[in-house]
């Protein structure tokens, strides 16, 4: 995909995400929006997958360790044809095919997460399992910044480095907020990029809402294979891409009434039009 196509894909993901969460009346929209650009790059260009065979043995794996961001993945998976778009309107309703937290039973979802801190261990296990079997796929893992409070994350960080899991690429969604407020007020973790470097990881900080930068950093991580796992710290904004949600202070999990859905969709449509103008389309 071109940059333009990925940007439009990210816009599509956001539109379907807002629509799905709005159908339910609310949800974890802030931390979903902050990773939409990453998800667009991963599913738009980077990852190998087959929507018709979600458990294809040769696929790349994605573990969304911050399981509450599952709706962003669901929107991308629906757009890519893993399941019908209509499923999105049943998001997190009783008897749904799409639970609010990442669930293995959903076509295209590799790991069940939601109890924070566990996904990076699962990603380590997949990466290590692939490695000992001589397989070349990559394992991508998305963790939250608040999630990095969990001790298990640091167990897994040591493990990945010890076993030289160079096929593991982890993203840290540094949107700077968690349920009870700003990270720096709830639990100050300091320089996370430096911490991962100290654990033996390749580590970098990028603009997590800049598709070109995300794309470049992932390609670099895929190519490097220097015996170390890679952590890409995404400098993001909670609620990114929709200004009326961005400006809500506590936007981790919020009610999303029809009025907010309408305002959001109008803004996303305007952004879409701007993108088309920028890329020379009418």
């Amino acid at each position: 995909m071109s940059i333009k196509e990925i940007e439009l894909f990210a816009n599509d993901i956001r539109r379907n995400l807002v629509w799905a969460i709005g159908s339910k009346g609310g949800g974890h929209i802030g931390g979903c929006l902050s990773i939409c650009d990453l998800i667009a790059v991963l599913y738009g260009e980077v990852m190998n997958y087959d929507p018709n065979t979600p458990n294809w043995q040769e696929r790349d794996y994605l573990v969304c360790s911050k399981g509450h961001a599952a709706p962003a993945l669901y929107a991308a998976l629906a757009l890519k044809g893993f399941f019908p778009m209509e499923w999105l309107k049943e998001l997190n309703r009783a008897g749904t095919n799409l639970p609010g937290h990442s669930d293995r039973k959903v076509p295209g979802i590799d790991a069940t997460t939601g109890s924070l801190g566990q996904g990076l261990s699962i990603a380590c296990g997949i990466a290590h399992g692939l490695k000992v079997q001589g397989k070349n796929q990559y394992v991508f893992c998305i963790t939250g910044d608040g999630e990095n409070d969990e001790g298990q994350i640091w167990e897994a960080a040591a493990y990945a480095s010890h076993y030289h899991l160079e096929n593991l690429i982890m993203f840290l969604d540094w949107n700077k907020k968690q349920i009870d407020g700003w990270n720096k007020e709830v639990m100050q973790l300091g320089d996370l990029a430096e911490k991962y470097r100290a654990f033996g990881w390749n580590s970098s900080v990028i603009n997590g809402q800049d598709i070109a930068e995300i794309r470049q950093s992932i390609h670099k991580a895929v190519d490097i294979r220097n015996g170390h796992p890679t952590m890409i710290l995404l400098d993001t904004v909670k609620g990114a891409g929709i200004s009326c949600i961005e400006k809500i202070e506590n936007n981790h999990c919020i009610g999303v009434p029809d009025s907010l859905v309408k305002e959001s969709l109008e803004e996303l449509e305007a952004i879409r039009m701007q993108l088309k103008i920028r890329y020379g389309e009418s």
């Binding site: 043995q57 794996y61 573990v63 590799d110 790991a111 801190g117 566990q118 996904g119 990076l120 261990s121 699962i122 990603a123 380590c124 296990g125 997949i126 990466a127 290590h128 399992g129 692939l130 000992v132 079997q133 397989k135 001790g151 298990q152 167990e155 897994a156 040591a158 493990y159 010890h162």
Partner: peptide
């Protein structure tokens, strides 16, 4: 050997099973 990391060990086991082990 995970070292003294029981929680991580369970997660790694889950991941390894997903990868076919």
């Amino acid at each position: 050997n995970t070292g003294i990391q029981e929680a991580n060990m369970v997660g790694v086991a889950g991941g390894m099973n997903l990868a076919g082990l």
